[in-house]
Amino acid sequence: MAGIVTNPKRRNSEAAPRHLTEPAAVRYILIGIALLFLGLIVLLPMVTVIVEAFRKGWAAYIEALSDPDALAALRLTLVTALIAVPLNTIFGLCAAWAITKFKFRGKNLLVTLIDLPFAVSPVISGLIYILLFGAQGFFGPWLQDHGIKIVFATPGIVLATMFVTFPFVARELIPLMETQGVQDEEAAVSLGARGWRVFRKVTLPNIKWGLLYGMILCNARAMGEFGAVSVVSGHIRGETNTLPLHIEILYNEYQFSASFAVSSLLMLLAVLTLLIKSLLENRMSRSHEA
């Protein structure tokens, strides 16, 4: 583990600092490596998407986004995220609280089970709901008799999305709350604060950024999920297509520019939320210093 940052330059700088940062050269090299990595792995695909999106010009771009099917897909995607994210946030808070504030048997198992949806192939995360609620599934006949549609309709899409984004908030909070320990809360309790108040006044301010991160990630993934949703959606145009599925359809129709245009919209949404978040963060840390 010790050799994790294997930068030889680092050793040369050993004698230098008396304060809490590295010499400029090391800093720039580290920044350089990090940016190069990010550039090759993340930025390039993004640039490709944007270049392709505008290949046919602005008019085509706008047209792709204002297509009624695209709007219907956008609406479904947002509705799905609006249901899945709050539910997973509540769950994430509860799970993180239980896991980091208490000691109990089977904690490792619980943490691992929470991680499990990450490890489940998206193909499978869709399939399991088909096995449960599909016409041939365990509850299928009952649902059909009562005229309830779950798979190939919005509920199925929401369920699959919830499954896929299930661990995000919890996963973000657990390590954070772990390092923070329980002292603050215990102090509050010993001063007479109770339950909900402890959480709101003591814990929440400490974890708010982690929580926000978690929600943003959860949201981004909820809007971008493809594999699982593709299995339960039924691909009915204008009805059960989410944005990612709409993108696939466009791509398969040789409408490359349009499909990348819609992808860039998803990308933009993600980058925008993150930018707003970091701006807020910056402003607040500045007002904090002042």
């Binding site: 998206p122 990630l217 981004a220 971008g224 493809f226 992808s263 949404l269 980058v271 993150l274 930018l275």
Partner: peptide
Amino acid sequence: IVDGLIDLPFALPTAV
């Protein structure tokens, strides 16, 4: 911006 980029892989549909 770099900070924002990090989350892109979550937001971008895997097929894209």
